[in-house]
Amino acid sequence: MKLDARTLLYLTLPPFMWAGNAVVGRLLVGIMPPVLMNATRWALVALLLAPLAWRVFQRPGDVRRRWAYLALIGSLGVGSYNALQYLALKTSSPLNVTLIGASIPVWMMLVGAVCFGQAVGRRQWGGAVLSVLGVLLVISQGQWRTLQQVQLVPGDLLMLLASLAWAFYSWLLARPPASMSGGQRPGWDWAEFLFLQVLFGLAWALLCSGAEWAAMPASVDASASVQPVVSAIDRLNAWSPGVRLVVGLVFIAVGPSILAYRSWGLGVQAVGPTVAAFFGNLTPIFAALWSALLLGQSPRWYHPCALLLIAAGIALSSYRKNQ
């Protein structure tokens, strides 16, 4: 399908919101345990969606016949991806996490080829190279020696698992089983479908949160201080730590969760997971924008250069779809 203005919006909004999630998530990781934070986030999403999606409970047979698929995509996209990312930030640096996250288009192509029979052409590989180069330019700040100093830690493996989980989640959205395709798909609207994903994913997230609590008991510390985001927001708004915690959770529940997941689903359905994955590499660019808005850090010369590389990768990888 052609990358029209609406599809571009669907695929651009998620990385913009996810960049904000990285900033706010980094803040909240210092206040509450990461897996508990993920479970709390999706519990809030479930509460927000419930008034729009409660009618799914009127047709329990539709859910029972498709519970395996719903549980799988819920555990991958809701219960696992962000929990693994938050856990990775406990031991890994943002530089390493971003580096590994930049490999998602490659994993998306490999998963599609191996598990879903999707052929990968030279244009897609070329687009992946351009896109990853753009991300490397941003996170290296235009200096090669920055990348030479990267050291792998256990959190990097967690981010790799998160990337694989997201690749499978996206492909399962684009290639659902017969019971979720065509006339066999129940008449769920977007809110009902996302609500079911959240419920199944929340069950997995709560289970993992319990394991986290048993392995390393920790408490929520609303007085924790995390630099530099906390100090910047405090200087601008003078928010108390408790208010900051509530506002941060509400933001990641509404923006990076409801809005971003809804848009991502529409974008993946329109262009497929392989092309959609390249838009995820816009996240570091938007992270620079969030930093400018929240921290007063002006964009540098390499930001527009990286944006051009990533845009070129998107254009090259989607060239055949525009014919």
Rank of each mutant, 00 (worst) to 15 (best):
L160A: 12
G187W: 01
V150S: 09
G296N: 05
M17K: 03
A211K: 01
K2L: 09
P284G: 02
L84R: 08
R122P: 07
H303I: 12
K321N: 15
V268Y: 11
I104K: 01
L44E: 03
G255M: 04
W107K: 01
S263F: 11
Q141N: 07
A19Q: 04
P177N: 10
L49A: 07
V226A: 04
L293K: 05
R235E: 15
F251G: 01
V24R: 06
V246R: 10
L110R: 08
E192D: 09
L173N: 10
M17R: 03
F195D: 11
L44G: 10
P15M: 03
A260N: 03
P34H: 11
Q184M: 14
G121T: 15
V153L: 06
A238T: 14
F16L: 14
Q148L: 12
M1H: 09
L13Y: 10
E212I: 03
V229T: 15
P15R: 07
V129D: 12
W290G: 02
R55Y: 09
Y319Q: 11
W213R: 15
A119E: 12
R244K: 14
Q124P: 01
W290C: 08
D62Q: 13
I310V: 12
A315R: 11
L266I: 07
Q227I: 04
L295G: 00
A292K: 01
P33V: 02
L236I: 04
G182Y: 08
G248D: 07
G112E: 05
L194A: 15
G134Y: 00
L259W: 13
L194H: 12
A46V: 05
V120E: 04
S103F: 11
I258G: 05
R6A: 08
W190S: 14
S318D: 12
G142M: 08
L137D: 01
L27S: 06
N281H: 08
T283Q: 14
G61V: 05
A211V: 13
F200P: 08
R55E: 07
V150P: 13
A43T: 15
L47P: 05
A270M: 03
L307V: 00
A119K: 06
Y169I: 06
D234G: 14
V271C: 07
L87F: 05
G101P: 01
A119T: 08
Q124C: 03
R235H: 10
